[in-house]
Amino acid sequence: MGQADSGNSKPAPAPVNAPRRALRPSRRASEPRMSLNLAPMIDVTFLLLIFFLLTTTFQRAEGVLGANLPHDRGRPAVSLPISPIVVRVASTGPAASDFALRIDDFAAQPVSFSELSGFLVDIRQNEGFDVDTPVVIVAGADTPWELVVECWNAAVRARCRNIAFGGEGR
């Protein structure tokens, strides 16, 4: 097979009587010029580039905060948890830093969400409180959602496992 191919690729011998010099220029002229037409490829490439430039948005990633809603499936073996920890949050002004936090039945009142997280950890030192003690976040109807999520985040940070929403009248 290889032999046959190599035989075919050989140029056909010129007729004996044909003038050699006349044959060569005519063959060169008939050969197509080999060149790659780059223009369409560049067009497409630039279109793609512009598409990606326009559609790309650099955005902060979003994630989820776990929140299992309480369910009265069975009762806890120990009935020690005296009462849930009630965290009250209210907005006191238009700015994001205008808020008031209160934990019912505890003397210390946090002024920031980091402090709230610390308090929720500290509260577990008391007898009857642990990570499963319900934490109820109570917010007024006009409290911005952001403050509620801040409280929730603080409770998650404190490794509380049982967090719920409460509400002050609708």
Partner: peptide, 21 residues
């Protein structure tokens, strides 16, 4: 951007515990 994730201003808690899952 997924069409499910409607663009909006999401809460940005300090020391966020949110995880991408």
């Amino acid at each position: 951007a997924s069409a499910e994730h409607v663009p909006m201003e999401l809460p940005q808690p300090e020391r966020s515990q949110a995880r991408q899952v």
